[in-house]
């Protein structure tokens, strides 16, 4: 299901904050065009540089090794609150 908020968010044009899905899709496109078309050497090199930057961005996203989990609770007044979830209790 498409998530419009993710791809049209205010931060998406900025390279370091690019969403994983977008970076991955672009990277797939770059690799595919490099593999199939007989690109002139100059544009091939340009594609290569773009692809390398995208791959790096994807790898950074994947390398975020720390689980991010929070608890959503409802206060008496109906206010929703996020609280850190103690991972130790769940991990053994």
């Amino acid at each position: 299901m498409p998530n419009p908020a993710k791809t049209t968010g205010p931060n998406s044009p900025a390279r370091p904050n690019i969403a994983f899905e977008e970076a991955l899709t672009k990277l797939e496109g770059v690799v595919e065009s490099m593999e199939s078309g007989d690109l002139p050497l100059e544009s091939l090199i340009a594609k290569y540089e773009e692809g390398m930057a995208l791959a790096k961005a994807c790898q950074q996203k994947l390398a975020e090794a720390e689980l991010k989990i929070q608890q959503l609770e409802k206060a008496a007044g109906g206010e929703l609150k996020l609280k850190p979830f103690p991972l130790e209790t769940a991990e053994d």
Partner: peptide, 14 residues
């Protein structure tokens, strides 16, 4: 897998 292989793939292509 694809992400980790992509750089090598692109280098090979060049």
């Amino acid at each position: 897998e694809f992400v980790s292989e992509a750089p090598a793939l692109m280098r090979l292509r060049v």
